[in-house]
Design a protein around this nucleic acid. Structure first.
Length: 848
DNA sequence: GTAGGGTTAG
């Protein structure tokens, strides 16, 4: 029972501080060692609420092994895919403590609450209430009950409690209190319609026209991401003659933050607040900080210093929100400094601080640093909670450390933290990406067994891993189950389906599916578009129509064939787009080997791709570097510079600078554009390594394709200097992994020229030289290049991904009179000044 | 009235 639940502080002693391996961990660690672990202090002071829910996972010896009460489906969002609902559910499960300053309720209310747990439904609960009626003292007790029932997700009991209380309350002001509490509770439960209903009734009943009910309703809308509605209520309260107070302003600002409203809009509200004589407080600033999450990290830093100027102290929310902003733009070193600063200011990092920074490291691909933070967290005596365990799990899965991942699951269990849908999705994706399909099946079975409901992310993940593995029959089955579950597809699920179509050559169907998802009200995002742009012209093959009659494989069983043949019946039941998806999956399942392609004319493709860009503009979808890379790659597939120019024009509309660099290099105006190019390269290097290398590959390829080989080489060397391929380059070995064919060829020339200068300086080459090459297409390109220039390399017999040669043979070849000429790359289009530059002898050796 | 997590493109 709740009263016997030990306080949350009954955690095991912090693990012994020990040496942290990463440098980055060190600074904060030293600081933490000077301060006693703060967590027990925080939690001993908490009153233990009478909640049967699992605690914040702080206990290693769980005292509550009872299963989670399942929140009533009707009162929660249909799925937890959205950020807001996930966050909400986390709060609910963790039974996050509210600051209990206003616990003016009587002990009787606690008794009612304790008994309410046994009530099967709201009718039984009402009977309990009636039994206590005379002893419950007014709105304070009822408000307490409402909040606590809300915390437990007991929506219908809260409704019963509210009705019971309002009917018995005579005072208008007390009824108003009940109403604003109820609105707030409904808002917290994500049940914004009920909140509105309560509000309207209260207003009509003559007790709802208060700043409190309006503020509560603003907040309710805000929590559900309904920012426009929140602002509407905010405006309405003004027209009703009510003056918004600090809480009203904070609520409306926060609703904007949650909905991702532009900073300028929120700033106007802030100005309005000041001009109405309402002084902002810490929470105002904390919410303003949250508005900066779209990448406005400098604005966030400015806000924090403005807090200082105004004499408003920063708290752990301030720092956590600031850190989130900083981490989301990938500035992990700055995040680390901020974390040290907060500790120095005696604002101690908590589990949210760590999970924010850990997530930042993980997203930046710095998985080892992320693991270092976990160590540091342990040393600081901060126990992991569900979010943290899930983060740790996903890091191990990304690293392919499956044993460690399973140990995380075991540890979660021993701490009394049940695996949730996030945990399962991580496991499904982790195993699936490694092709461990047996494990995928086991995990999915377990998920069903323990009744963790799959959500749209679960299905997207499964469809994705099965499709990528070529297990189309399994993907189809998952898709059908998804449809049966009645979940609404989202942009990621659609993008995944579109990607599968694209990768199998069904580009036309992919475009149709894109249209249909838009019609369904699902907004495609930049990933959706990048997927399709990237697909154009990738694979050549036979023309293959979706509606073609597909021979049914007898062995495949009836299911697939039924889907393929029951066209009209299916059309009535499903949307036609789903029907098509099923058809294609079925088709892929029975005929995996077919390399299909729905386009056979490049002009048709060009028009289609231009149409896509137009749509992107219309939908105001902001392109990113991946889009730029995809456009450049599409240019590389154009037969003429004129066609490519049409695509480049799109690039210009998206980003003038990237266009300027690409266009300048293509047209031979390297001199005028090179400084801009260098600054662009520096910026690209700030991105994660695979994005950066993809961009360098795309730019080099298009330059190589249109004969700007010297330009391609300079770009590739800039990439090499910035270490975007992380490849080996030494006198004896050149590694070409992850390079595109243009980049690799430009690189080979640069490497051979460099070796030539080594030879000419009188140094001896190693006995054996080698080049490490990647996949088949790249290997063929390099093979062609080497034989074309007469370089004496051949495929190693022991390793077919490697070209080798004797040092002496290469030396002889390099010293030959004609070799330099074939090694030096030229641009077909050069401005006069470039030509002079290229002919300068000091270009050798190359700027490495 | 305030903070953290999972899926898609390259």
């Amino acid at each position: 029972m709740a009263s016997s639940t030990p306080p949350h502080c009954s955690i095991t002693a912090p693990s012994k501080p020990h040496q942290i391996s990463t440098n980055s961990s060190h600074k904060t660690l030293q600081h933490n060692q000077q301060h006693p672990p703060h967590l027990p202090r925080r939690f001993t002071s908490h009153k233990v609420s009478a909640s049967p829910l699992p605690s914040n996972s702080l206990s290693k010896a769980p005292t509550f092994l009872s299963p989670l009460p399942t929140p009533k489906k009707t009162h929660l969002s249909p799925d937890f895919s959205g950020k807001k609902s996930t966050r909400f559910v986390s709060k609910l499960h963790f039974n996050r403590q509210r600051s209990n300053l206003s616990t003016r309720h009587s002990p009787v209310a606690e008794d009612v609450l304790a008994q309410s747990a046994a009530a099967i439904d709201e009718v039984q609960f009402q009977v309990i209430l009636m039994g206590f009626e005379g002893r419950l003292s007014g709105s304070e007790d009822y408000c307490f009950l409402l909040r606590e029932l809300g915390n437990r997700g007991e929506s219908s009991k809260a409704v019963a409690c509210y009705e019971f209380a309002v009917q018995r309350e005579r005072k208008v002001s007390e009824r108003g209190k009940l109403a604003s509490t109820m609105i707030s509770v409904m808002g917290r439960l994500g049940n914004v319609d009920s909140a509105r209903f309560v509000f309207d009734n209260a207003v009509n009943g003559g007790y709802g026209n208060t700043v409190y009910t309006y503020s509560a309703l603003i907040s309710a809308y805000g929590r559900s991401g309904l920012c426009k509605e929140a602002i509407g209520v905010f405006e309405m309260m003004k027209t009703q003659g009510l003056r918004p107070n600090l809480v009203s302003y904070n609520a409306v600002i926060d609703s904007c933050a949650k909905a991702g409203v532009k900073f300028e809009v929120v700033n106007d509200i802030y100005d309005d607040m000041l001009s109405n004589g309402v002084d902002p407080d810490r929470i105002t600033f904390n919410s303003m900080l949250a508005v900066c999450k779209g990448g406005l990290w400098k604005e966030a830093m400015r806000l924090v210093s403005e807090m200082g100027i105004r004499g408003i102290d920063q708290d752990v929310f301030t720092y956590n929100t600031l850190l989130d902003v900083i981490c989301k733009v990938g500035k992990m070193d700055l995040a680390f400094d901020i974390m040290s600063e907060m500790t120095a200011k005696n604002v101690m990092p908590n589990v949210v601080t760590y999970s924010t920074v850990i997530d930042g490291f993980a997203k930046a691909g710095r998985l080892e640093d992320a693991l270092g933070m976990f160590e540091e967290m342990k040393c600081a005596g901060i126990a992991l909670d569900r979010v943290c365990y899930n983060a740790l799990l996903s890091i191990f899965l990304k690293l392919g450390r499956f044993k460690d991942a399973l140990n995380v699951c075991k540890e979660m269990e021993s701490c009394g933290i049940r695996k949730d849908v996030v945990t399962y999705n991580a496991l499904l994706g982790g195993f699936g990406k490694q092709g461990k399909y047996d494990e995928v099946r086991q995990v999915f079975d377990q998920m069903r067994r323990v009744r963790v409901l799959p959500n749209v992310l679960t299905y997207s993940t499964l469809i994705d891993v099965y499709s990528k593995g070529g297990l189309y029959r399994e993907a189809l089955e998952v898709f059908k189950e998804f449809k049966q579950a009645g979940l609404k597809a989202d942009v990621v699920l659609y993008s995944g389906l579109i990607d599968t179509l694209c990768k199998n050559g069904f580009v036309k169907s992919a475009v149709l599916l894109l249209d249909e998802m838009t019609k369904e009200g699902i907004r495609p995002n930049v990933v959706t578009y990048n997927t399709i742009i990237d697909a154009f012209g990738r694979s050549a093959g036979v023309d293959y129509l979706v509606d073609a009659i597909v021979p049914v494989d007898e062995k495949s069983g009836g299911k697939t064939s039924m889907i393929l043949t029951c066209d009209s019946a299916a059309r009535n039941l499903e949307g036609s787009e789903h029907n098509r998806v099923m058809k294609i999956f079925g088709q892929l399942a029975v005929d995996k080997s077919r390399n299909s392609k729905e386009f056979n004319e490049s002009s048709q493709e060009l028009l289609c791709i231009l149409g896509l860009f137009q749509k992107m503009h219309e939908l105001e979808i902001k392109p990113n570097v991946v889009t730029f890379s995809a456009i450049l790659n599409a240019c590389s597939r154009c037969n003429s510079l004129e066609d490519a120019s049409m695509l480049l024009e799109e690039l210009r509309l998206f980003d003038d600078r990237v266009y300027g660099v690409a266009h300048g290099l293509l047209t031979g105006s390297r001199d005028t554009i090179w400084i801009q190019a260098l600054s662009l390269f520096d910026e690209v290097k700030q991105l994660d390594i695979s994005t950066a290398s993809a961009f360098y590959n795309a730019l080099t390829d298009v330059l190589w394709h249109f004969g700007q080989k010297r330009g391609a080489q300079l770009v590739v060397l800039e990439g090499k200097n910035r270490n975007v391929w992380e490849n080996v380059w030494s006198t004896s070995c050149l590694d070409l992994h992850l390079m595109s064919s243009g980049a690799a060829r430009a690189m080979v020339h640069a490497w051979l020229l460099n070796i030539r200068s080594v030879v000419l300086e009188g140094h001896e080459l190693p006995k054996l030289l080698s080049k490490v090459v990647g996949d088949g297409a790249l290997k063929r390109a390099i093979e062609g290049l080497l034989s074309g220039i007469g370089a004496p390399f051949h495929l190693a017999e022991t390793n077919l991904g490697r070209f080798i040669s004797q040092g002496a043979a290469v030396t002889t070849w390099l010293k030959k009179s004609g070799t330099l000429q074939v090694l030096l790359l030229q641009d077909v289009r050069t401005q006069p000044e470039n030509r002079r530059l290229d002919q300068r002898p000091n270009l050798q050796p190359l700027p490495l």
